[in-house]
Design a binder for these strands. Structure first.
Lengths: 223, 223
DNA sequence: GACTGTGAATACCTTCACAGCA
DNA sequence: TGCTGTGAAGGTATTCACAGTC
């Protein structure tokens, strides 16, 4: 266990957060903002679980939240406002993030729209595609550039996250190139595991894999 | 441990497969089809790991594959053809699947195109949207119907999987309605956990949650 | 009494080490 | 020797049970 730094300038996690908990913390954050909007000042772990459709157990919520720093009051619940702030802090949601979309087909467009609508501090600042018909188009004022020009133009956009939404064959090359250009975090939609040298954080969105879980389980039931 | 049914009509898993392994098995299947296409007849667990960019350890691959039924030959590796068949079988990829897309914005379109391109046996047979400008459009010959008509038209399409790609506010209602109409499996893109009564298999694609993992880790590094 | 925080127990998943076999 | 298959070990995540606090 790590000793909490009492004198830390800003709230800080008491223990290093485990990765699996992060999407849950993000879900709490979203639900709590909704509660905030509805004028609530306080919430219990059970109340939060109910807001999340009981897809997460209240003990899981308490465990997750206790990893931040004791924020609840026994017998009362959690004060929502400081909890929202704390969650935004640990999730990195208080920074602005500049996102490069590589591959601007339906998937790239869908992601760009989705994520900018969801988080105000997520900004798409560069878009690349290979198709001549797409290059030169604009999206929210951003001109789609040719992937071939990535080396010249990506640095100017000051991106810290890249989203790879290109066909499988092109994914590895695109990912390595953005990594070489200094991007430290990649969200990969290509059904193709990336192997990158260097300390790049990669998360894969495995759409077909998720479908396979459904078809596997459905065909089990059919027996 | 479960006793393998020796006399089973078709190859069958020796042990119940754990859910986490399914997307991996699907990745193996894809890689092996590629190897097949390249004319290879046999592969080792190390060779497969290399094809997957060493994102999965070879011991993990052997563990996963050994859960199916011994298919490898010690000292030689795996014969690719029967392995591909066996994987297709356990993943349910030998059936045809009929998919309903609920919400035909960029995300719905992206998913429809992506998944039908990837697996020949995944068919989109019904599409619904709420926006009058979208209703009546065609995609690959399928007419987009009004979500309000779902009760009348979904049954005809014979779908067994629904993809929820609607805004968060509408997700719960749409999901419950498709479940009430007999759909047993849902892939949910809405950032909103669904709680459904009845035995419906739900998988969530949490795009914002994945982004939160990236922003969390990037902001850790910045310290 | 109500609810959080947390050690202990459990379940789960992955990695290791090596036996078994061609 | 080369590689699979697998029990054992290790590590990680979740659930339980309850002590602690308001």
């Amino acid at each position: 266990m790590i000793e909490p730094k009492i004198g830390a300038a800003r709230i800080e996690a008491a223990e290093p957060l485990v990765e699996v908990s992060i999407p849950r913390l993000y879900a709490y954050h979203r639900a709590l903002r909704a509660a905030q909007g509805a004028g609530k000042r306080t919430i219990t772990s059970h109340g939060l679980a109910a807001m999340l459709g009981h897809t997460i157990a209240s003990t899981q919520i308490r465990k997750d939240l206790s990893a931040l720093r004791p924020l609840g009051r026994r017998g009362h619940g959690y004060a929502i406002d400081p909890l929202v702030d704390q969650l935004a802090w640990v999730l990195g949601l208080e920074h602005d993030w500049r996102i490069a979309i590589v591959g601007f087909g339906y998937l790239g467009r869908a992601f760009a729209g989705f994520i900018t609508a969801r988080e105000r501090r997520f900004n798409v600042t560069a878009i690349f595609d290979r198709a001549p018909s797409v290059v030169g188009q604009r999206w929210q004022g951003i001109v789609v550039r040719d992937v071939a020009e990535m080396e010249r133009t990506l640095a100017d956009a000051g991106c810290n996250i890249a989203v790879i939404a290109v066909p499988a064959e092109a994914a590895q090359e695109c990912a390595q190139r953005v990594a070489d250009l200094g991007i430290r975090a990649i969200l990969n939609f290509a059904p193709m595991p990336l192997d990158l040298r260097g300390a790049v954080i990669v998360r894969n969105i495995d759409l077909a894999g998720e479908m396979a879980i459904l078809t596997h389980r459905l065909s089990l039931e059919a027996l």
